[in-house]
Design a protein around this nucleic acid. Structure first.
Length: 565
RNA sequence: GCGUUCGUAGCUCAGCUGGAUAGAGCACUCGCCUUCUAAGCGAGCGGUCUCAGGUUCGAAUCCUGACGGACGUACCA
């Protein structure tokens, strides 16, 4: 239900009817329940323009406002606010419609676009670590969300499979022979051993350097070794994606190396555009008003990540025909993206109308506010973190009820992984965030378990109620009304979250909505004796819509629900 | 040095397309289970929204500056 735009339409019509020649600002959610459901604050701003008292303007708008359908009551308050109350019956019927709709009342975008979402992007030389968590789940959520709203989403996993360290790694892989494949079980260890060998043995180091050149010149033997290594490494990533319930597959992989062939052409085209300059031996693009150039080719002829990114950008714009390209990458690279977006546009590699976005996010910190590391200062492997989440969740769950071993395993996975993802997604993505096990798994406040718990409670109602659920939704009190309106706001929230690429708007909404439901549920009995049958049916339906909304919301975040908890 | 970004309750965070008395959770105090999951609900306590100016009828939100932190700053990604 696009509540806001429906209200805005009514306001706009009132403006026309009242002869006010201005574009009204959007209505907003009422700041407090006593001010209704929505408020229009645009009258005050018009005072100067129209040379009238704001309350007078508000009165004119009010007089012209159609209150025959969704608006039940409108009042002027304070200096010129217009408070809007939605009609009980209209709200009830809209909820009923949402309930019978597979998409819980969320329509598809009228003008969907093709969007590339670039996320995760692990380096194949090493195992995924905690630093990859945010990109992976924020990107996945954004993809799910845009897809659900109707955009055509192309997920792109820009894996790092190229660079000098691969010479060393494949040389070591070759040396290890058949055992090599087994040793790849632990990439960190493998990397360390290869590095030790590299530093200690000059002949090995020479061979490693030779292999770098050989891969790059297309040598079959070396490319085979390289491919074997990449396959194993990607397998590790897929384990992580599986555990995280992230929708990334091999089909989404478009590795760095994919763009290799285009790199000389990128340089050539930049020359054609007259953008390239040599500086200290390197090929650079100097942007207007900026001191530091974008280096696209090193003095030794090698290419850099800026070059690859430019190639990727134009592939996405011109071959994939994306109209919006989102890079879900650490905020520390914002300078880099600002520059290459600039170059991509001025070089006309990417058409003017393509939106380029750096969906930046902050760093994950430990409890003391330092970047998240292991005790001995190493990086924390993502797979280890996820396993620990499941173990901790298991401890928290097992004594709650008489679960079988199997049930505990199943629940712990859903609860533990959900907790990690939710904790991350519920933080405004641009700020750094403190990773805190206790908070995450305490299951209080705005956590995944609170939502999962509410969902399970609702399912338990339906387990006890066997008869058919039918009839109208009847709104009997203020809390019920608030909950119903809140449920109808879901679409507005999703659209805004998609526009801003910020998952935490979804979590904030879910938390507020579920809190309302919990209050409603405390206050308004459903199955208890003495509840009028029609009211019971109505409340069952509100509970059902609440559950469906929780489920859909969590699903977009890649978090599962369970019927019993 | 320059640039980016952040600074909201004891702690962790929302709110930031300008609107009415700045919101949650944790912690602390108190209350609510003889039938719908108490991993819940209610009440209380807690604020110079870092500071100083400016724009505005109105600023946590926009602008300028200061202070404090984080990050970035030419051949790594």
């Amino acid at each position: 239900m696009k509540l806001k735009s429906q209200l805005n339409k009514l306001i706009k019509e009132a403006f026309i009817k009242a002869g006010i020649d201005a574009e009204p600002i959007s209505v907003s959610e009422a700041t407090q329940p006593q001010f209704g459901d929505y408020q229009f604050n645009g009258a005050m701003a018009l005072a100067k323009k129209l040379g009238k008292n704001p309350r007078e303007i508000a009165a004119e708008i009010l007089n012209a406002l159609d209150t025959s359908t969704l608006i039940q009551k409108a009042e002027i308050a304070g200096p010129g606010f217009i408070n809007l109350w939605l009609d009980h019956k209209w709200v009830a019927s809209a909820c009923k419609d949402a309930l019978s709709d597979e998409r819980v009342g969320i329509s598809k975008l009228e003008t969907p676009v093709k969007v590339v979402v670039d996320y995760s992007g692990p380096n194949m030389a090493k195992q995924m670590h905690v630093g990859h968590l945010r990109s992976t789940i924020i990107g996945d959520t954004l993809s799910n969300l845009l897809e659900f709203l109707g955009d055509e989403v192309i997920r792109q996993n820009h894996i790092g499979d190229w660079g000098t360290q691969f010479g060393m790694l494949i040389a070591y892989l070759e040396e290890s022979g058949n055992e090599g494949a087994e040793q790849l079980c632990d990439l960190e260890e493998f990397y360390k051993e290869a590095k030790t060998r590299f530093d200690a043995d000059k002949a090995f180091a020479d061979k490693a350097r030779e292999y770098v050149v050989k891969i790059q010149s297309g040598d079959h033997h070396c490319l085979n070794l390289w491919q074997k290594f990449i396959d194993a490494s990607l397998g590790h990533c897929e384990d992580v994606y599986g555990k995280l319930c992230v929708n990334l597959t091999r089909e989404d992989v478009k590795a760095e190396s994919f763009y290799n062939e285009d790199l000389p052409q990128v340089i050539e085209d930049l020359i054609q555009e007259g953008l390239l300059q040599e500086s200290n031996g390197a090929q650079c693009v100097f942007l207007e008003g900026e001191e530091i150039p974008v280096i696209v080719q090193k003095g030794d002829g090698g290419y850099l990540y800026a070059t690859t990114d430019l190639a990727a950008l134009r592939y996405r714009a011109n071959v994939l025909h994306a109209k919006r390209i989102c890079y879900v990458v650490d905020a520390r690279q914002s300078e880099h993206f600002r520059q290459i977006f600039h170059v991509a546009k001025t070089s006309r590699f990417v058409p003017e109308d393509v939106k380029l976005e750096h969906v930046a996010f902050g760093t994950m910190m430990d409890k003391s506010g330092r970047p998240f590391k292991t005790r001995d200062g190493g990086t924390v492997k993502l797979i280890d973190l996820l396993d620990e989440a499941v173990i901790r969740a298991k401890d928290a769950i097992k004594e709650r009820e008489n679960y079988t071993e199997e049930e505990v395993e199943h629940l712990a996975r859903i609860v533990g992984i959900g907790a990690v993802k939710y904790a991350d997604l519920s933080i405004n993505r641009e700020s750094n965030y403190i990773f805190d096990w206790d908070k995450m798994l305490s299951f209080e406040g705005n956590t995944s378990l609170y939502m999962q718990y509410a969902y399970a409670r609702i399912q338990s109602i339906f387990k006890k109620h066997h008869a058919a659920v039918e009839g109208d939704i009847i709104i009997t009190d203020a809390l019920e009304h608030q909950l119903a309106v809140m449920l109808l706001r879901f679409e507005d929230i999703l659209e805004r979250a998609a526009e801003d690429a910020s998952p935490n708007q979804i979590t904030t909404y879910l938390y507020e909505m579920v809190t309302l439901f919990m209050r409603f549920y405390e206050q308004n009995p459903i199955l208890k004796e003495g509840v009028d049958e029609a009211i019971r049916m109505s409340r069952l339906q509100l509970a059902d819509l609440t559950a469906k909304t929780i489920k859909k919301g969590l699903e977009l975040l890649g978090i599962e629900v369970v019927d019993r908890l």
